[in-house]
Design a protein around this nucleic acid. Structure first.
Lengths: 233, 233
DNA sequence: ATTACTAGTTTACGAGTAA
DNA sequence: TTTACTCGTAAACTAGTAA
């Protein structure tokens, strides 16, 4: 993945990236000249130019140079870098609002695929999560420490999936929590959810995740691989 | 002021300071060795040592070296530096929660001193603002743009100062908003409040500020000097 | 163990300049 | 005007060493 290049930028570049975001580079393109940007970050125009070059080659910004300056926009990777910084600062001043759960990939028993595909659930996923999940769950078996931390999930605001019934039986309600999954090599998948049945008993040390893509493919995971799941409120 | 030294540290030092805060250096002393810290920030032990030296001499951390490491704690200045960063990131992702008002210092008509000194107000200031304000207000005359932005103040949670009366007349209620004042030379005064009478009509382009100290002295201000007032929620 | 100094090398910087 | 190159200098880095 391109994350390797992302890690290459230094603190000065992150600071410059933040400046660009404050100037509106996150919501759309922003028009700049190197000299104006130099004034903002307190360097020479040459250094300002170099900062932008490095952010560009690291894939954190996209830009188009025109005759009297350049149009700059942050990329998704650039936004991720800043969001991670933001999380750090929020942790410092507000305390951690993210639960970090780690464990290993295990094979599910296939029932995840069955339930998720049912239209009674699928329609709610589309509506409430904003995507149609891949028909199947990623199963993560957690260690003791993570099982303990998992309890704090109850304090979070969940996306509620309502129960329903057909002719044969009833299907119970469930709660979804936004999550970020980080693979062993540091790759991150942002748009996933931890899904927990509300009433049905579940294995305490097992975490089930859904996402628009098949997470095993997206993060190149196999049974036994170690992942970290960041559950956010 | 000591802010000059604060401004001297670079982005690398701020990043290191953030790391120290995440390790608990904000809530109390944290025990570290240079080599352990080097691993955290991804540098050599020599560079880690130098980062700490610079943060120390800039007054952002206080530390005590012992035989097997050192005890480190962030100073108030160090916390301020990080809080400023935090505000930047919050502005980026949550939108500005700070109203920036700029204008020039003008001579008040002396009625500020009179009202503020009255015990009916002064007691509430002590109780609700946590300090006894200097008997007098700093008057700032704003430009059109700032007058427009000032309207957003209504959306903020104010510290409410209640009205009262004595034998002769009634004194109206007022609202106070925490503010930071920044002088022309970049010096900042943190512990001040914008005070706005609730009912009495006031000049739309005039901002009145109170603070524990005489702001003209603390920030070395004269009539006509340009200041920026950051009103926070 | 530590911290922090000195020395040698690499990297980053700003001035000047070309396109 | 711009952006971004080259170049000489200044600053920052890592390795080694002393306390």
């Amino acid at each position: 993945m391109s994350e390797t290049a992302t890690l290459a930028v230094g603190a000065d570049e992150v600071m410059a990236l933040k400046r660009l975001a404050l100037d509106g580079g996150l919501t759309g393109e922003v028009k700049l000249s190197c000299s104006a940007f130099a004034d903002e970050i307190g360097t020479s125009t040459q250094t300002a130019s170099r900062r932008l070059q490095r952010l560009d080659s690291a894939g954190l910004i996209a830009r188009e140079t025109v005759s009297d300056g350049q149009w700059i926009e942050l990329t998704d990777d650039g936004e991720h870098v800043l969001r991670r910084e933001y999380e750090d600062y929020r942790t410092v001043f507000e305390g951690p609002r993210t639960i970090e759960l780690s464990g290993t990939i295990t094979r599910g028993m296939g029932e995840g695929q069955h339930y998720i595909s049912l239209s009674g659930y699928m329609e709610q996923f589309r509506e409430k999560l904003g995507y149609e999940p891949f028909p199947g769950t990623l199963n993560v078996t957690m260690g003791d420490e993570s099982v303990r931390r998992r309890a704090a999930l109850r304090g979070f605001d969940a996306v509620h999936i309502e129960g329903w019934r057909d002719e044969d039986r009833t299907y119970g309600p469930a709660s979804c929590y936004p999550a970020v999954i980080e693979g062993t090599d540091g790759d991150r998948y942002d748009e996933s959810h931890v899904i927990v049945p509300d009433r049905t008993h579940y294995d305490e040390d097992r975490l089930e995740l859904i996402a628009p893509d098949r997470l095993r493919d997206a993060l190149d995971l196999e049974d036994g691989d170690r992942v970290t799941v960041y559950v956010t409120e």
